[in-house]
Design a protein around this nucleic acid. Structure first.
Length: 1061
RNA sequence: GGGCGAUUAGCUCAGUUGGUUAGAGCACUAGCUCGACAAGCUAGGGGUCAUAGGUUCGAAUCCUAUAUCGCCCACCA
């Protein structure tokens, strides 16, 4: 450990060396210490301290961390470090997330680019191996970044959502849900990429306007009654899908719907600006016309639908029903709409409401038409089939190519990865039933067991859950937890086909017949079965869910002809278990016992539903208890243009770049300082030129370029986009933000204030007795009062996640109070031997407390200073020095207690008078152009009490303003030539005989006079208002009167001074 | 389309149940290398609190509308 002596303290650099501190103290914290065999960050479940647990939102192993992660983890670390100091047994559980789609996509992309291989060529195992390699590399990098940041995680417990322990929790949960009947197999529309032959998630889909057409067709009505329409007209942009139509819909109450639309339009019209009124009126007129032309027909059709009328679906020989459904819009087109549930999301919803119509999938996985369409269209691509269908419909008289087609811009979905159009595709899918689970998670928040902070975010959480939409959990990927279900089509007459599978608590193997005479494995404990009958074919499929990953069991199952599901589980399925799976569940571990439920979750708002809600629900389901009792949602970091930071935009900032340049402490303090309740953090991004170190703004243009030329020196450097060897040969330009200068400057200020204190603690004597209160001077009591106030404020603010408030309070205390005043004052006191001791003790104590209060935000610097303090002044308590030496590390030092007895408003007011006089003297000096080196003298007219408090401060006026107080009191006579400044209850006169500049002083006084006159007028205006005097509270009126008197007094003295000039 | 949030100094942000002359950091101006700190010190300049109404003795703060921006969700036959 550091053994600092006074002499080497004098050699400490005048700039804080963040790199050295980071390298020194992180390993120190992780090393074993007496009472902490696993290091300070390791949580022992056997500890008798109360537990405090946070689980990290596991970062994706997709890539490196960005500033958003830095913020998220800084906020968690601040809380953890504070709680540790407050005597809690803190567990911060670290880990990473396998992030199915994102990670697999990144690795596949690399595979294509580097080796020109597709995943199919590599095979499932090969690809998964590749991804594991990627994961090892990035996990290391991510965890390294967190350590650089100073995160005090319990690294010995690091987990990964795809490791064995998490896998066990996933299987157990899936099994439980399966057994409870909460998992079922259904159909789901997915975004199908016919080129890559895979489903892609919504956020991997981009929309592009393309030119297309809008075709009108008519479907004949079968056996219309006299007077009824003989055909219905529908329109589509995708004619080929008509081969999969299973119904045509009309609105169930077209008249009412038209009324509703009209009412909405009228409302809009009333509120609309004039320029839009015309357009809206036209729409209303069109609507009125529709009532005449279209509505009677729609009413007829609606009645026909209710009668069960069928339509002929041309080209297919099929008949489809006319149905009544709200999806049909009477205000649009013909008012009728074709329903293709397997290839359109809205039509899919219509099917959900009208189950009998069925759904027909007409596509193969490669995008060609399948066996569900008439033979002549089979095998055709969508494009070819479209033309064939149009031609055949025209030939059959169902479509007139001359009149029944119009050009239209279509917003077409494309796959981000293959850039080909997306086909909505009906795929088999596993679902989790959400009704009860969602309700339980809603209840936990509505009844306050889980508190979401700020509480406005609870609304989104509850709204989303209240839809209780079943959770599709399968993903057509290879990277993830493979669904633990095996299936086989079985003969209905198979004697092992079971009917009681779902009802028996013992499982389905009651008779032990499944594996013949196999009795070596207790299969019933490890599996559960569901059976499904396909309505059309009558084929029975049996699904066996395995709880264990026992190889021999799997072997036997597969030997029986069962095949495993290809799909893996949604990444959120494993993340949802994070709070309990990481603690060992389903094992009944000591850690789980001690640390579950966890206390606080800190995350960003975009995953409240995807992640937070699901953790609550699985926590309640698996553990029968909430996973955490509060969730703090922190702001997002945006760039200088107000856009979210992302790698793909190129506006991301690597925290390591910031740490290199400014230090982890500066990064952390800067982030905490910016974390306010309502605001997102806007952070202009700059390039740092590696050639000349110039910093210049990143623009929307240059942020996506592989090479950028420096604004200052013109030389080029490469960015994150560099791919070619040529670009990469250039030096790398880092990306940063000047926002962190605040933190760096503050750290440097703290460092130098600490250096000053350490240098002046020579001969420091802790003394066995408490410091006698009467030995404290005004400034000592003032500092202690401020310290107690700030301690209270910071403690309360951090408990309520008001990070910015805490950071601002500490910044202002350290800089404005401690450095600008107390330290300056002690310079004079240290010069006087008999005043040294008390000032040293107060200073050491204040610095000690400040380091502890700052440690959660600024861990490295505070540790550095703490260790130096320990070597110079090991005992620093003010009132109980017998308690012995300070803790061996600030990270386990007790959190400062608020000493209420120190808080003294009178003292603070008195000190403010001193500050006002100092400030007045300095101002008068500057305004009268008196050089700083010149000594001046001044006098203060004031009452006896003020005189008593100011007189002992004479030495400080000398040292801080180079001014000698010549007279103080009520009857002083200022010298002939003075510059005067009236203050509250005082008047400061600076003797300017040697620097007399009548013009300058006159100008100054007149300026001040003008301001005060204006102010006086505004107060007089208020007081002259009868209503104000009679209605405002008496104390407010009184305060205004006193204010006015004050101002008038000041004006009088300025007038006097002017007259004298 | 629905929901949420924002708009305060050139920039990034504070501003407590409505009550001093609306604050901070950066940037800017002037001056300062006195033994903590030039990443600093001292003193300054700079704001019609987005706009329009309303409530009130009194509005940056409360209400209504508008504009602009951002985020989440839904939708786009």
């Amino acid at each position: 450990m550091t053994t600092a002596t006074i002499s080497n303290i004098k050699e400490l650099p005048s700039q804080y060396d963040h790199t050295a501190a980071q390298e020194k103290w992180y390993p120190f914290w992780e090393a074993p210490h007496p009472g902490y065999p696993g290091g300070y960050f390791h949580a022992d479940p056997k500890s008798d301290k109360p537990p405090f647990t946070i689980v990290i939102p596991p970062p994706n192993v997709t890539g490196a961390l960005h500033l958003g992660h830095a913020l998220n983890n800084t906020l968690q670390d601040i809380l953890c470090r504070m709680k540790r100091m407050q005597g809690f047994n803190v567990l911060w559980m670290p880990g990473t997330d396998h992030a199915g789609i994102a990670t697999q996509a990144v690795v596949e992309k690399r595979l294509r680019e580097e080796q020109n291989l597709t995943r199919h060529e590599l095979g499932r195992e090969g690809l998964v191996d590749r991804i594991w390699q990627w994961k090892q590399q990035y996990e290391k990098r991510i965890l390294g970044q967190l350590k650089q940041l100073g995160a005090s995680c319990d690294w010995q417990r690091t987990r990964f959502t795809l490791d064995d322990q998490c896998a066990r929790a996933v299987r157990e949960t899936f099994f439980k849900l399966f057994k409870d009947g909460n998992i079922y197999r259904g159909k789901r529309l997915v975004n199908w990429d016919t080129f890559l032959q895979t489903a892609v998630s919504d956020d991997e889909v981009f929309h592009e306007q393309v030119k297309g057409s809008f075709w009108h067709f008519s479907y004949p009505v079968i056996d219309p009654q006299p007077g009824e329409p003989e055909a219905v007209t529908i329109a589509t942009t995708r004619p080929e899908t008509m081969l999969g139509d299973t119904a045509v819909a009309v609105h169930p109450d077209p008249a009412k719907q038209l009324d509703k639309v009209e009412a909405e339009l009228k409302e809009k019209l009333a509120a609309a600006p004039d320029k839009e009124k015309e357009g809206i009126q036209a729409q209303i007129d069109a609507l009125a016309e529709r009532r005449e032309t279209v509505l009677p027909r729609l009413v007829q059709l609606r009645d026909m639908a209710q009668r069960g009328v069928m339509l002929e679906l041309p080209l297919t020989g099929r008949q489809i029903p006319l149905i009544a459904d709200i999806w049909a819009k009477p205000e649009l087109g013909s008012g009728c709409v074709k329903i293709t549930p397997a290839h359109d999301a809205n039509d899919y919803d219509v099917w959900q409401r009208n189950q009998t119509i069925g759904a027909i999938n007409i596509l193969n996985t490669d995008g060609t038409l399948n066996e569900n369409v008439p033979e002549k269209y089979r095998g055709l691509t969508v494009k070819k089939a479209r033309q064939a269908v149009i031609d055949d419909l025209a030939a059959g008289g169902f479509h007139d190519p001359e009149t029944d087609v119009e050009a239209r811009e279509i917003d077409l979905a494309h796959s981000d990865r293959s850039k080909t159009p997306i086909e909505p595709y009906l795929a088999d899918q596993w679902f989790v039933k959400m009704d009860e689970l969602a309700q339980s998670a809603m209840d936990a928040v509505s009844d306050g067991r889980v508190k979401i902070i700020p509480d406005r975010y609870a609304k989104g959480y509850l709204d989303w859950l209240s839809e209780k939409r079943d959770w599709p959990i399968g993903r057509q990927l290879w990277w993830g937890h493979r669904i633990p279900v095996w299936s086989k089509e079985i003969d209905k007459l198979d004697p092992t086909a079971l009917t009681n599978a779902k009802t028996s608590d013992e499982g389905w193997m009651v008779e032990g017949t499944f594996f013949g005479d196999q009795t070596d494995i207790n299969f019933t404990q490890l599996s559960w079965v569901q059976e499904a009958v396909d309505a059309d074919s009558g084929i029975v499929t049996r699904y066996v869910c395995l709880r264990s990953d026992d190889e021999s069991l799997i072997y036997k199952l597969e030997a029986e002809g069962y095949t495993r599901e290809d799909d893996v589980l949604d990444t959120w399925f494993s993340s949802a278990l994070w709070p309990h799976s990481t603690l060992g569940w389903p094992g009944q571990t000591e850690a789980l016992e001690t640390f579950y439920p966890t206390n606080t979750l800190i995350t960003s708002r975009d995953i409240i539903t995807l992640w937070v809600a699901r953790m609550v629900l699985t926590g309640l389901y698996n553990m029968d208890d909430i996973p955490f009792d509060q969730v703090y949602i922190h702001p997002k970091i945006l760039d200088g243009y107000g856009e979210t930071m992302s790698k793909s935009k190129g506006n991301g900032v690597d925290p390591l770049d910031v740490i290199d340049q400014f230090g982890a402490d500066a990064l952390r303090f800067g982030l905490a300082y910016l974390t306010t309740e309502t605001q997102d953090v806007r952070m202009p991004v700059e390039f740092v030129c590696p050639h000349c170190n110039a910093v210049f703004k990143q623009t929307k243009k240059n942020r996506v370029l592989p090479r950028v030329g420096c604004d200052k020196c013109g030389q080029e450097f490469h960015t994150q986009w560099a791919q070619t060897e040529e670009d990469l040969a250039l030096p790398r330009g880092t990306v940063t933000s000047e926002r962190f200068e605040l933190g760096r400057n503050f750290c440097n200020k703290l460092w130098n204030a600490s250096r000053f204190a350490l240098m002046n603690l020579e001969g420091y004597d802790p003394q066995p007795e408490a410091l006698a209160p009467e030995s404290l001077l005004l400034e000592d009591r003032w500092l202690l009062s401020r310290l107690a106030t700030v301690t209270k404020l910071v403690t309360e603010a951090l408990a309520e996640f008001r990070y910015a408030d805490a950071a601002r309070a500490l910044y202002s205390f350290a800089w404005d109070d401690l450095c600008d005043f107390y330290v300056e004052i002690t310079k004079a006191r240290f010069a006087v031997p008999e005043q040294r001791g008390v000032a040293q003790r107060v200073l050491a104590h204040a610095l000690d407390s400040l380091m502890r209060l700052l440690h959660p935000m600024i861990p490295f610097l505070t540790e550095e200073v703490w260790q130096l303090l320990n070597s110079v002044a090991p005992i620093r308590a003010l009132t109980h020095p017998a308690g012995g030496a300070a803790a061996e590390s600030v990270c386990i030092a007790p959190w400062p207690e608020v000493d209420e007895s120190h808080i003294d408003a009178d003292i603070e007011r008195q000190f403010a008078q001193f500050q006002a006089v100092i400030s007045a003297v300095r101002n008068l000096r500057t305004e009268n152009n008196i050089p700083p080196k010149e000594a001046v003298s001044f006098s203060v007219r004031c009452d006896a009490a003020t005189q008593a408090l100011l007189e002992p401060m004479a030495a400080y006026f000398e040292s801080m303003a180079r001014a000698t107080a010549t007279a103080m009191g009520s009857d002083i006579t200022p010298p002939e030539r003075v510059a005067s400044k009236p203050l509250e209850g005082m008047e400061v006169h600076l003797d300017i005989s040697d620097f007399f500049d009548a013009e300058a002083e006159k100008k100054r006084l007149e300026g001040e006079q003008e301001k005060l006159t204006k102010f006086a007028k505004s107060i007089q205006g208020k007081l002259g208002n009868e209503n104000f005097v009679s209605r405002a509270p008496a104390d407010v009126v009184q305060a205004e009167r006193e204010k006015l008197a004050e101002v008038e007094e000041k004006l009088a003295s300025i007038e006097a001074a002017l007259k004298k000039l």
